[in-house]
């Protein structure tokens, strides 16, 4: 039914659409014909004039010139390696000297440390005093040390040893 509406003969309609397609094909073909060789030539030129070979020669020359510095290079590498190791060691070291210094700084005139033991970041202090109050102050002060951080305090014993006026305190803590 629809064909009857079209006044043009069928063949003419088909020819018209074919000529349109041919036009498009021609445009595309022309585009390809120009673009493909241009791209190819450009890429060839870029590849041909690439500085790769020149860089390779420069690198070879530099490597050759560095041969004379081999002794210095080896020493330098050694220094760098050792210094890196030293940095690592220094960073991982314990601060036990600061811990001990801080603890001794808390002992007043009345408190004396009988023994002190530190291992694996755990500390055990055995202190004595003639005054219970001084020992209590010492214990409190230990908890407030700022230079190093002591945690998990355990007062294992607070005893009156050796008669009246001689008290001992045993504290354990963790160093953080």
């Amino acid at each position: 039914m629809k064909n009857e509406i079209n006044f043009l003969p069928k063949q003419l309609v088909r020819q018209d659409s074919l000529s349109k397609s041919v036009k498009w094909l021609r445009v595309v073909a022309l585009l390809f014909v120009f673009v493909v060789p241009v791209v190819s030539i450009v890429i060839f030129l870029l590849t041909f004039f690439s500085p790769l070979t020149q860089y390779q020669i420069t690198e070879k020359n530099l490597i050759a010139s560095s041969q004379g510095l081999s002794n210095k290079i080896a020493k330098m590498q050694f220094i760098i390696d050792r210094t890196r190791n030293a940095t690592k060691f220094i960073a991982s070291r314990n601060l036990y000297d600061q811990v001990i210094q801080s603890i001794y700084a808390q002992t007043g005139s009345d408190v004396s440390i009988i023994s002190l033991y530190i291992k694996d970041n755990k500390i055990s202090i055995f202190a004595s005093s003639s005054s219970l109050l001084s020992l209590k102050t010492f214990e409190t002060n230990l908890k407030n040390i700022t230079l190093v951080h002591l945690t998990d305090f355990q007062t294992t014993s607070l005893a009156n040893s050796g008669g009246e006026g001689n008290y001992t305190l045993n504290i354990m803590a963790k160093i953080q």
């Binding site: 060691f89 991982s92 070291r93 314990n94 036990y96 000297d97 001990i100 440390i113 009988i114 023994s115 002190l116 033991y117 530190i118 291992k119 694996d120």
Partner: peptide, 8 residues
């Protein structure tokens, strides 16, 4: 590095 210390 100090690993352990006992002072008495």
């Amino acid at each position: 590095s100090v690993q352990s210390i006992t002072i008495s």
